[in-house]
Design a protein around this nucleic acid. Structure first.
Lengths: 159, 159
DNA sequence: TATTACGTTCAATATTGACTGAACATAGTA
DNA sequence: TACTATGTTCAGTCAATATTGAACGTAATA
């Protein structure tokens, strides 16, 4: 166990955060736990570390893998599944967020404005405009993050 | 009732969207419904239109008002509460989103890196960096939207 | 073949939180 | 005062879903 007391706090707060994003809390904890691990973890490792059933870990790890937030890796001479946090997880989670926003955008676009009173039309156009700005800002951020993915040398990167 | 068939769809999709954002579905429907109304609505209006109990409307409308997404207005000679969608709702909802992200940011910042293996340190720094980019992008979008709030020309609307 | 080690699935349980009806509080009105 | 119209609160119900233990499938190994 290579994490301190505050590390457990981190795992827990990730559980809460991802729960607020619609994932099961255990999936969030699992993701947070993998973030602070330096070695791949087996299902049993994870179940033991998080104190939950292997069934939950099995389900949630596959869900996270499906989302692209973690990846399954193998070890030679070992037929167990191991998981690590995906190197692109920051990018992926942003893409997931964008996907949700675009869905909301569509329901605004599809609304038939012509039959609505002008006040409402204008209001909806403001919503659409704001929404468009947000989506574009996130798309820009996504492109930026993508382009910076692997810094050339081991520069201790900040901003 | 000044909304067409697709307007009902819009209300429903707003219900689902805001449910995914952590609000009760009825609150999302209520918000969506107010978006496409040209006149302020009383609690009874809303309860009838959405087909839910007045208790739900009372609770959720106050919750939405608390969040700043809708505002309560009065009518002279009428002691009922009326609600309209807040003129700043697009801005406010972005602020709410930002608030959630900053909370997640904090749990990353508070993590004590010194005791963690370098691989993990680097990973967390990447997360922090990506997160920072996202937050900054949204802050920029927010500033943009704020600055465009009231287009100089047609000032016909608002209540 | 039997056995073990693993991952998955599923029926059942537990938990959470939305939603409601009914009781309540308050203020206006007769 | 009594009566009505409104909004709020709260205990209880209900639905959704997270979580689990146990059963299951499968593959390696002996």
């Amino acid at each position: 166990m290579n994490c301190s007391r505050t590390c457990g706090d981190f795992v827990e707060s990730m559980g809460l955060f991802w729960e607020s994003e619609g994932l099961p809390r255990i999936a969030g904890r699992l993701f947070g736990f993998l973030i602070v691990q330096s070695e791949p973890c087996s299902l049993d490792d994870l179940a033991a570390a998080l104190g939950v059933s292997k069934a939950s870990i099995s389900t949630d790890s596959r869900r996270l893998e499906q989302l692209g937030l973690i990846t399954r890796v193998g070890k030679p001479g070992d037929r167990r599944d191991y998981y690590v946090v995906d190197a692109d997880a920051p990018i992926t989670s942003l893409e997931l967020r964008l996907r949700g926003l675009r869905r909301a955008e569509r329901s605004l676009d599809l609304l038939d404005l012509s039959s609505l009173p002008p006040v409402v039309q204008q209001r909806i156009q403001r919503f659409e405009h704001a929404h468009h700005r947000i989506v574009r800002a996130l798309e820009d951020a996504l492109a930026q993050i993508r382009s910076e993915k692997f810094p050339p040398a081991s520069l201790s990167e900040t901003l």
